Computed example of a mutant assay.
Amino acid sequence: MVVVAIGTMCLIIALSVFNGLEGLLRSMYGNFDPDVVVFPASGKSFELDSSHIVTLKSIEGVAGVSEVIEDNVLVEYKEAQRLVRMKGVSRDFDEYSGIRNVLVAGDFPLVRDSIGYALVGRGVQYDLSLSLQNDFYTLQMYYPKDIGPGVVNPTRMYNLLNIIPGGIFAIEKYYDDNYIFVPVEFARELLDYGNRLTAFDIYLTEDANPIHVKSDIQSSLGEEFQVKLGEELHGDLYKVLRIEKLFVFIILVAIIGIASINIFFSLTMLVIEKRKDISILFAQGASSTLIRNIFLYEGCIVAFTGAGIGLILGVGISLVQQHFGIVGMGMDSAVLNSYPVQIEILDVLLTVVAIILITFIASIQPAKKASKSFSTQTFQ
């Protein structure tokens, strides 16, 4: 019974931690990624048509559409330089994006009093030794021009624009170390894109069905564009998490299965110990089925009792961690101070069913042995 209880508890806690990690990732990426992304099926950019935005905003469930121009640029601050991923976004990004939830310094939005500002990832800030309190230095951004042969003047080989750093965000290491957000007008001028964009970021209403909206957008824009949900941008990562969760479940169930050998031997010893009692039951007319069921019921009592105790302990510990964060990450730079935990009913049900099934299977052989051996030997 103790083995069953401990196994159930460990399974529920382990699965809840994986659920918490997946929820944490979805929450972090949700502050950066839009609900739906539209980008060209081929090439890096596409020509903006005024009908595109009108069409997108007319689709049911679409709350906002942000124009996006994204590319790699060289950024310089004082004497420091590095390559970053610049993402130019329009005003709908300010209204619907969750980026404001992850600002650790500075202000939002990107355009204030007709002046454009940049939101810089915390990792980029560290590399550039950037200070928001120093108004004398701006971010200098360089982007190479599409020039022909014969140009020898270095200043004609690139575009250069200055922008004031307005805020610092911290989402996740990859984004923090690589991304800078700027107004789309600034990006269009720096990259000399004219009327071209690289993508549309689309934000949905709370009651919208993302899959239906994605289908409507794809049918409206045609095969010239690809449409992806925000979650699909990190589909591989979520898939890896689910595979890891599955393997953890299988490994722990296998360990519990091996530990259930104790139940098998316990019931076998019980059969031997109760030889006389079983013989008396046979003498009084008990059938082999009744004797078998008695020991099966004994195994079920162990299974249900152990699973119940483990369920209470596992859910209880998970709830305590979820609300009070007793077990910490052990890192000062961690996104959360404690391990994230999220209990899902399906995991609890699968765990209980697996534990009961394993214990029941371990009880079958001793029960059969009790019903067969004594029925053929008693009073011969």
Rank of each mutant, 00 (worst) to 15 (best):
V84F: 11
P183S: 03
G150W: 05
G166E: 03
I355N: 00
S220Y: 05
M157Q: 13
V3S: 05
K369H: 11
Y96R: 02
A362E: 01
I217F: 08
S279G: 15
I53E: 12
M331F: 14
G308A: 06
S219Q: 08
I356C: 10
M86H: 04
H323N: 15
A187D: 06
V151F: 13
A370E: 03
S288N: 07
S51N: 14
K173D: 12
D135E: 09
N159V: 08
Q321M: 09
Q140E: 09
S219C: 02
I251E: 00
Q322V: 04
A187S: 07
G257E: 02
R26M: 11
I294L: 13
K276Y: 14
T378G: 01
E172P: 09
S42P: 00
G116Y: 03
H52V: 05
L229F: 03
L110F: 04
Q133C: 09
L24G: 01
S338R: 01
F186G: 08
A80V: 00
K239R: 10
F379V: 13
E298C: 09
S266Q: 07
D49V: 10
E223M: 15
H234W: 07
F379A: 12
I243G: 07
I309L: 15
Q125F: 11
I59R: 00
L56R: 03
A334E: 01
Q365C: 06
T205N: 15
R82D: 09
I202A: 03
V38R: 01
M331H: 13
V182E: 05
A354N: 02
G98S: 07
I6C: 10
T351G: 14
G61L: 06
I12M: 01
L190R: 04
V36Q: 01
A41F: 11
L139W: 04
I309F: 15
F186N: 00
L349R: 06
T8F: 05
L190K: 05
T268I: 10
I99E: 02
V348C: 08
R242N: 13
A307F: 04
P149V: 12
S260L: 07
L241R: 05
N195D: 15
S373H: 10
F108Y: 14
E22Q: 14
E70P: 12
M331I: 11
G257C: 06
V4P: 01
K372G: 06
D332V: 08
Q226F: 14
P210T: 05
L252F: 04
Y29I: 07
G30E: 06
G310V: 06
V353R: 01
F265H: 13
N209M: 07
V36M: 02
K145A: 02
V73D: 00
V104N: 04
G325P: 09
Q377H: 12
A105D: 11
K368S: 07
I326P: 08
T8H: 01
R112V: 14
Q321K: 06
P34N: 08
G150H: 06
F304P: 00
S114E: 14
P340R: 06
G328D: 00
